[in-house]
Nucleic acid binder design. Structure first.
Length: 582
RNA sequence: UCCCCGGUUGUGUAAUGGUAGCACGACAGACUCUGGAUCUGUUUGUGGGGGUUCGAAUCCUCCCUGGGGAACCA
């Protein structure tokens, strides 16, 4: 398996899902049926100020998916109207990640910053209509006039009624002149804003004359210093949608309260009537899904970067070994609703295992090697044994693995005095070496100082070549192994949840959530060994290490210095039994 | 406090006035050359009270409860 973009959703999958299978699709279907919408157009509007995470994936899979389900198109539009935070490197990362998930925006790569001139004209139109004005109030004054309660988190009191700004009734001519001079750079940053004239007594505070433009002298990553005024989200977003003919503007619940504004600007600007519909954003246990928080982890060096395999970013998940198919499947199975929900990370991992189980080739590797000597093995003899690459996929074929009298097994697979129900290797017990022979433990050596087992000895039954028992005897345990002379060294990076707490943000008062990072979220195992074929693995290649889990060759991996990330472990029934017993 | 939006098994999601279903988890078992995979079975739910109706998760009402908002960010 290698690291390729996901193929488009298979047709069978689409047949299974009713086109109107969630409230958004129902709404779109209704708009189509009533004739209000002729051709569906959606958009995914990321701000290029961070890398995409799995929460964004839900959003753009809905955007692209809804369009596709109704024979429409989805635009990619960078919502880049805040020059302070945005950067071209984010644009590239975002495009790469969306493509990886198999979404295609074709030639529809748009930028809100391309609409600055058009948006300016629409602002002038609103001024002419008398529904926008230039205000001289400072930010603090404006907040006070709007009736915003003073920031006292513990005790916010009744929202005071709003008061009109003294500049609210400037003439159209004066507003036009002032706005033009704002653009021309005649006023200092923050000294004036353009505001919509709506209703300073509105119960929805957002409707109390929201700012449309601010003065900010900050070079923009695309428009440079062409502009010193920048449009605000509430003004810019609906009109950008309208410019593109977006019929359904799908966004997360936090924008629900903005919808009256969205509709107001469309109505007053007399532009294409896009319709905003909101859905619940994705939350997953043990994950932090907020660009702002992720940025902090990166900036403070708490993780190795945006693509650290512990990060919930798409680049992190990709590097970890997640397949785009598994992510798509997960997103489609959690559904779309308006209920705030917290999906159990186990469900994500279930979808992952389900996909990888079907597609990842099996291979044997030993994380913590323990030498196993086959005492009755003919000296110098080496056999090539046939091993199945993927029992779930006969087309994956078979391979040869070498077998000699000196092997390594997993340290966990031997116990001097086993607990009940342990059916791996212990003195006197027989076990099958996967695709090898049935062996019986004859003895072991210990380091007298440390008490550590240094070597295990066994005898093999030549009649059981390949692992079959001609006498039909039951051998309960089958363990994996590598041939000592031919084994390749590798480094294994074992990951666990970045945060131990289900809800990492729920930290006690006074405690910083970044301090709750799981100290065991990365365990590096340097001395692991793998079968010889692993030497050819290239970064991004995915395997199942038998009985251990799914692993993916890391970007850091190179011939002679192999590095594998554990994507996810296999389900481990034994661990459960052990836990119960203890 | 005000405004907006929600509450269906442990979790997520269906049922759109007509048998509360599906998936994951959990538990039990079968099978197995991965204690993997697969298969079978079991368990638990409409936040509460009142109302409309032959019939309510669904409609009305009151209450309880959770989330969001009050940036010259998006």
């Amino acid at each position: 398996m290698s690291d390729k973009p996901a193929s488009p959703a298979s047709p069978e999958k689409n047949e299974n899902s009713n086109p109107a299978s969630d409230f958004i699709r129902e709404a779109v279907a209704a708009d189509l049926a009533s004739g209000k919408t002729k051709e569906v157009r959606t958009r995914f509007p990321p701000e290029p100020n961070g890398w995409l995470h799995i929460g964004h994936t839900k959003a753009f899979l809905i955007d692209f998916g809804v369009a596709a389900d109704f024979g429409g198109k989805c635009n990619l539009r960078f919502d880049d109207t805040n020059p302070e935070k945005e950067d071209m490197s984010y644009v590239e990362a975002i495009k790469r990640d969306i493509a990886w998930l198999g979404c295609d925006w074709e030639d529809r790569e748009f930028y809100a910053s391309d609409y600055y001139e058009r948006l300016y004209e629409l602002a002038v139109k609103l001024i002419r209509k008398g529904v926008a004005y230039v205000d001289d109030l400072s930010a603090e004054q404006m907040s006070e006039y709007r009736g915003t309660a003073v920031a006292d988190k513990s005790n916010i009191t009744v929202t005071p009624p709003g008061r009109n700004s003294p500049w609210r009734d400037r003439s159209v001519e004066e507003n036009l002149d002032l706005f033009a001079r704002m653009r021309a750079g005649e006023f200092p940053d923050g000294s004036k804003t353009l505001r919509a004239k709506i209703d300073m007594a509105h119960p929805n505070l957002l409707m109390r004359d929201p700012p449309m433009y601010r003065i900010r002298r900050e070079p923009h990553y695309r428009t440079g210093t062409t502009w010193c005024i920048y449009p605000m989200y509430d003004f810019q977003h609906p009109l950008s949608d309208a410019i593109e003919g977006v019929t359904h503007s799908l966004c997360s619940l936090e924008y629900e309260i903005h919808r009256p504004l969205y509709d107001w600007f469309i109505r007053e600007a007399e532009v294409f009537p896009s319709r905003q519909i909101e859905f619940a954003r994705l939350s997953i246990t043990h994950f932090v899904l907020s660009k702002r928080w992720l940025l902090r982890l990166v900036q403070e060096g708490r993780v190795a970067g945006w693509d650290d395999p512990r990060m919930p970013t798409l680049s992190g998940l990709r590097r970890r070994g997640y397949s785009p198919e598994a992510i798509r499947d997960f997103i489609s199975r959690i559904g779309v609703a308006k209920t705030d929900s917290m999906v159990d990370v186990q469900f994500l991992e279930h979808c992952l295992r389900e996909d990888l189980n079907k597609r990842a080739n099996r291979v044997m590797a030993v994380l913590r090697p323990l030498k196993l000597v086959v005492e009755n093995w003919p000296a110098g003899k080496v056999e090539q044994l046939e091993a199945v690459n993927n029992p779930e996929d006969p087309a994956a074929g078979t391979r040869k693995v070498p077998f000699s009298g000196t092997l390594y097994i997993e340290r966990d697979d031997f116990m001097e005095t086993p607990p009940p129900k342990y059916f791996r290797l212990f003195p006197g017990n027989s076990v099958r070496l996967r695709y090898g022979y049935i062996v019986t433990c004859t003895g072991f050596s210990k380091d007298p100082a440390s008490g550590e087992v240094t070597e295990v000895r066994c005898s093999y039954d030549p009649a059981t070549r390949g692992g079959d028992a001609p006498d039909n005897r039951k051998v309960k345990g089958t363990i994996h192994w590598v041939d000592a002379p031919s084994a390749v060294k590798l480094e294994a990076r074992l990951y666990d949840h970045l945060f131990e707490a289900e809800r990492p943000m729920d930290v006690p008062e006074g405690k910083d959530w970044v301090e709750t990072i799981n100290p065991k979220s990365l365990e590096t195992v340097a001395g692991a060994l793998g079968e010889p074929g692993l030497a050819a693995a290239k970064p991004g290649d995915r395997f199942q290490f038998e009985r251990l889990g799914y692993f993916c060759a890391d970007n850091d991996s190179a011939p002679g210095a192999l590095v594998f990330n554990r994507t996810v472990s296999l389900r481990d029934t034994w661990a459960k039994i052990e836990k119960k017993g203890g």
